[in-house]
Design a protein around this nucleic acid. Structure first.
Lengths: 192, 192
DNA sequence: CGATTCAATGAACGCATATTCAATATATAC
DNA sequence: GTATATATTGAATATGCGTTCATTGAATCG
């Protein structure tokens, strides 16, 4: 359990990375095992030596996403506006500096929305409701005057969906000019 | 050329509508012809009486999108900030009141990004660069002080991607609370 | 070095699904 | 009312792709 296992792990990661990129660009169904194998430079048969099925490969990516990007957006008990500023800032930082993170972020939302995602995966993603806690935070921010008036749910949606849309672009075209996180926060920030 | 042709046209539209909804929720590849046929309540064979292939059905949707939603976002020679305000407002209005428009909007961006989209479709969508003209408008707005400082390309991306992300949500869950278009414009608006 | 395990291949298998087709019902036309 | 065109079906075909498998080559171990 030394060199060989390390090699195997490295190879698995290569596959995961190739699959991630293809999944977000073509979608799960349209991505062929042969596409992934070709990108990594191995035969189709060998890929099944590392992953027992296309679906389990997908699942493993989702698990990585739950442990990584998903944790980044977990609500805290900070001052409301501060939370939104910090979260956006941190998120944008990772999106810019870690392409893997960016792609993973996109994969997660695609998986959550896509009706064609495997059943197991959809189940894994249940219970990751970001809107409800966000909405509560927004109400607190409205009470202390740091966040603008308006339907808290609608504000929560606007904030997260805007980030979502920008993240998608950042993942797909990493060499683009990057927006500043503060711009997005202005969606919910109260004007002085 | 009367009743029968009208019926045929009506039937085609039913199919297009069902296909549109399935395409944006499951993706082109994962959507089976039998899914579409089932939703409309017809046999698989009959669907091929109305459309010669799955791909041509998809193409026809894209053509509708180019004639409809795509026109909504065409830059004009208005006062820059006013253009962004008006466009967002009109877009949000259609997104809320016309589910077909909303879904079509999502389909267009999915098609433009998705590497798995049929070749013809990708070609149809070439030359629809929204960012370049937008970026120029933003520069003008920065000169006259109505738009905030910052990289114009990045601002253009932030604005459109935010709208994109929100539109996606509106198309997928039409019964959600709706954000106001002005919130999004605040991404680029200069603070007083 | 011999034996055993792992890496790797490409062909074979089976299933799902887009597409075609022959057959039948229904509507239109004359 | 008969003939012709269109609507509709279900089964047959064909192809693409996930998965399996027998086999070979390379590395590790005693």
């Amino acid at each position: 359990m030394g060199i060989r296992d390390d090699q195997k792990q490295k190879r698995r990661e290569e596959i995961l990375e190739a699959a991630l990129d293809l999944f977000i660009r073509k979608g799960y169904a349209a991505t062929k095992i042969s596409d992934i194998a070709e990108r990594v430079g191995m035969s189709v048969g060998l890929l099944f030596h590392y992953f027992k099925s296309k679906e389990s490969l997908y699942e493993e990516l989702i698990e990585l996403g739950i442990m990584g990007p998903m944790q980044t957006v977990a609500p805290s008990d900070k001052e409301p506006l501060e939370f939104f500023e910090d979260t956006a800032k941190q998120l944008f930082y990772y999106l810019q500096t870690e392409p893997f993170f960016a792609k993973m972020f996109v994969l997660m939302s695609q998986a959550a929305f896509n009706d064609a995602a495997p059943q197991n995966v959809k189940e894994m993603l249940l219970g990751f409701d970001i809107y409800t806690p966000t909405s509560l935070l927004i109400q607190k921010g409205q009470e202390n005057g740091s966040i603008r008036e308006g339907n808290p749910d609608a504000l929560a949606i606007a904030y997260w969906c805007a980030i979502q849309g920008i993240a998608e672009q950042m993942a797909m075209q990493p060499d683009m000019p990057y927006p500043e996180s503060d711009w997005v926060v202005d969606i919910i920030r109260r004007k002085l």
